[in-house]
Write a protein that binds this DNA or RNA. Sequence first.
DNA 1: TTGTTTCTTAACGGTCTTTTAACGGCGAAA
DNA 2: TTTCGCCGTTAAAAGACCGTTAAGAAACAA
Lengths: 235, 235
Amino acid sequence: MNNKPTIVAVEDENSILNILEMVCKSSGYQVYTAKSGSEALMMISSYCPDLILLDLGLPDMDGFKIIQSVRSWSSIPIIVVSARNHEKDKVSALDLGADDYLTKPFGTAELLARVRTALRHASGDGNKTKAYEGIFRVGDLTIDYDKRQVFKNGQNVHLTQNEYKIVALLSKHSGKVLTYDFLMKQIWGPNMGSDNRILRVNMANIRRKIETQPADPAYIFTEIGVGYRMAEEKG
Amino acid sequence: MNNKPTIVAVEDENSILNILEMVCKSSGYQVYTAKSGSEALMMISSYCPDLILLDLGLPDMDGFKIIQSVRSWSSIPIIVVSARNHEKDKVSALDLGADDYLTKPFGTAELLARVRTALRHASGDGNKTKAYEGIFRVGDLTIDYDKRQVFKNGQNVHLTQNEYKIVALLSKHSGKVLTYDFLMKQIWGPNMGSDNRILRVNMANIRRKIETQPADPAYIFTEIGVGYRMAEEKG
DNA sequence: TTGTTTCTTAACGGTCTTTTAACGGCGAAA
DNA sequence: TTTCGCCGTTAAAAGACCGTTAAGAAACAA
């Protein structure tokens, strides 16, 4: 039943790290903390969080390196939280792929607002032609990105974390085939091999929950040898 | 064709508006300026810009109203540029749908970096309005490279991996003859001998699927002794 | 702790794809 | 005409791929 968005917070100062953790947890996020760059990279690749809070000044590694490293395989939103107020740093971080840059000291309300904004972006509302809404619809299937819930015929369908991530990813790119490799990387991180058995099991479970006839799917199709593709949202 | 991203800058103070305009123009953006809320709304709805720079303190209208109004029909990125540094304002603006909040005074480099970030977000996903680039058409045959799908008379045609690879290769070099040897090497690798029986079998299957009269093909022609050639895309 | 949910791995059977083999038509050349 | 090379077509064997179930491991909540 744990459908909270997940955040990895990276910061070497204990006091600040605690604040970040408390603030986020009290707003209903699942938080994992890391105090060094190497620890951060491990956590990010194993948890595949929904968002990363990153301090640039780490003891063992340049914060920019972390941004680069993560961006090489994922587009998880990254909010830089730094004491450094130099414009050069901001520009570098943003251009390397960070999504926002917050200078210490910051208010907790602003932090949370920026977190919400970043998560909103990640849930794929980047389409300027459509009205502003975080909802995907196709046939009798509805996905509410804000609530992280999926509905079939208006009825709430319970999906586990991984199942939801898969469905959300596919729906964000509906109509296109997402390769097994891509899906594996996005959900299980870059260190998982090319063995896609887990994905198959998850897909069977997903289909049992959202398809009327799992053997003859109407929402998620298989492109043999390539990947999966979700039916396109109707205009 | 003007391929510059378009920006609408909204600001009532002339000096700052000029700065915004100059900075953005010098970075290659097409800029339109507005000095009031009503003017801004008109411009935005008529130009449909790629990004909006918005000052909250306008003479005739609350800046928050503008965010709301725009968000009711579009998710064009909005960067708020404001002198107000109150946290309450930032939270309200972001939660109403603004994408970033920049406090005056700001450095031009940071402004531009945040503009780039916002544009990156917008163009990243879901924003393929009608990019006709990834599509090949000839007669009643359509190949959508992005979706990895082939259509005959608008109807989806299922091709296997190798079949799709062959069709995609031929279509990307339509009009030219691709030799058996070349096709074999591209699809089965360099270690496959010069025995092109496999290719013939695949071509028979492809033609049965995409040609109206497989015996008298209209899309993929045989150049005896040389290879295959796909009909050329019409202008 | 206990019990429950979720995640991962293993195994199996069925289906689709790929490859191989065989046959026949067509046209060119002897 | 006959022969030969080239190609298309079909069928069947071999193989790869995928869905499904079940059971063990791990994470989680009470």
